[in-house]
Amino acid sequence: MEPPNVSAVTEFQLLGFQNLLEWQFLLFAIFLFIYVLTVAGNVVIIAVASHDPRLHTPMYRFLKHLSFLEVWYTSTVVPPLLAGLLARGGAISFPACMAQLYFFVFFRATECFLLATMAYDRYLAICSPLHYPLLMRPETCAKLVAVSWVARVVTGALLCLMISRLNFCGPNQIDHVFGDLPPVMRLSCSSVYVTRMVIFALSITVLCVCFLLTLMSYGFIVAAILRMPSASGFPKTFSTCGSHLAMVTIYYGTMISMHVRPNAHLSPEINKIMSVFYTVVTPLLNPVIYSLRNKDFKEAVRKARTERGHVCGLRARGGFLLR
């Protein structure tokens, strides 16, 4: 007899999109293109926000951390997904699956807290502009960022510890694009009631609470905008807040549907599409929503390109003269 808490399954087979075999190469090209754009866009945000002194504000401090997180968040899922598309399915060892699950939960929970923090930052900037420099000092920003990163380590470790202590006797086929919590637990041959309740409680705490705080912040922002005596900046401010809120709503909506609302009646294909959306598409939307629509950031990008062009021109002319 096997000892308890020891998994008979040593690896999982990720089925991915095997029901779309004729579309494997096209899906690979699409996901690779999105992944390259996501990494490049977020790296540009980090570089420009770090280089330009005008962007050394609390908003862009948070945005740099969000961009750094997005690079690693999407890198946790997309490269194994691309490898599986090329191989028309792939295997992942049990320890590798737990590692992927840990980093996925850790980055996802951290992003929820960062999005709520950024919404609170915009609330203070618009609703309390006179007190904003005092309330959002560099020390305060550093503490908020530290809490968002450090506190979520425990969340990921707790969930992965509970999953790793389950028994997996077979089958070992995960009908999903990566080792997410619901499809992995469905393969367990032991009771998952306690684990499911803990996941539900943490999901309510992290997802729903952060989502409600974000909605409250943007609700106060919209109310403040409507009370503005001058309508000169109303369209731009309302459009920016509206795009932020739309992205946040889509991001939280897909994750809450996956991890809070019972999804047993949803087909595996729908679950795959929803997972791909918040792991592949959303990290690409963040650079567009939070930076490329911002006038200050676009001016900083143009300035950086101009300075780089001048430097390259001087180097080229210098090299010509040396010859």
Rank of each mutant, 00 (worst) to 15 (best):
A142M: 07
S257I: 02
R227E: 15
T195R: 01
Y73N: 08
T195H: 02
G313E: 08
S188R: 03
V177R: 03
V194A: 12
V192S: 07
M258S: 07
L314Q: 08
C210W: 05
L284I: 01
L130V: 12
V71A: 00
L144Q: 04
T279R: 03
E139L: 10
F28N: 08
T254W: 08
S275I: 02
N42H: 11
I250A: 15
S148H: 06
F31T: 02
R308P: 00
F113T: 14
T38R: 05
P171C: 07
L314Y: 04
T279G: 04
K64E: 08
I163W: 00
Y123A: 09
L20T: 00
Y290C: 08
T74L: 07
V301E: 12
F103Y: 15
A49D: 11
L245A: 14
G253N: 10
L21E: 10
A99W: 04
L82Y: 00
C169M: 06
M1S: 12
D175S: 10
A246W: 03
V71Y: 06
Q173E: 04
G253Y: 02
F178E: 03
E269T: 10
G309F: 03
E70A: 10
G253K: 10
A47N: 03
V43P: 00
L181A: 12
A96H: 10
F277W: 04
L69I: 09
F25M: 13
Y252T: 09
P287F: 02
F62Q: 11
G309Y: 02
M136K: 06
L81T: 01
M59W: 12
M162C: 07
F28I: 04
N286G: 13
S217R: 03
L144S: 06
G170V: 00
S190N: 03
S75R: 05
P262K: 03
V184R: 09
R308F: 04
I221G: 11
P235R: 11
A83W: 09
T117N: 11
N271M: 07
V301C: 15
V145I: 15
I34C: 09
M216N: 14
S239N: 13
E269R: 06
P235Y: 06
P129S: 09
A224Y: 01
W72L: 13
V198P: 02
R165A: 10
G233F: 08
N5K: 04
I30Q: 05
R61M: 05
V145M: 14
S75E: 03
L202M: 12
L130F: 07
R302V: 14
P229T: 02
L66D: 03
L212Q: 12
P3E: 05
A119R: 05
S148P: 07
T306C: 14
K298S: 12
H56P: 11
C189H: 07
R323L: 15
L115Q: 02
S148C: 13
F107T: 11
N294E: 13
F238W: 12
S190T: 13
G313L: 14
E307Y: 01
V150A: 11
T140I: 07
G219H: 06
C189L: 03
L134D: 11
C141R: 08
I289W: 02
S267C: 00
R108H: 15
E11A: 15
L161G: 11
L284E: 01
L27H: 02
T195V: 09
G90F: 00
I163Y: 00
T249M: 05
P4E: 06
F104K: 06
Y290L: 13
L15E: 04
F25N: 14
P79N: 06
V147A: 11
A83C: 04
A146T: 07
M136N: 10
G219Y: 03
K303Q: 15
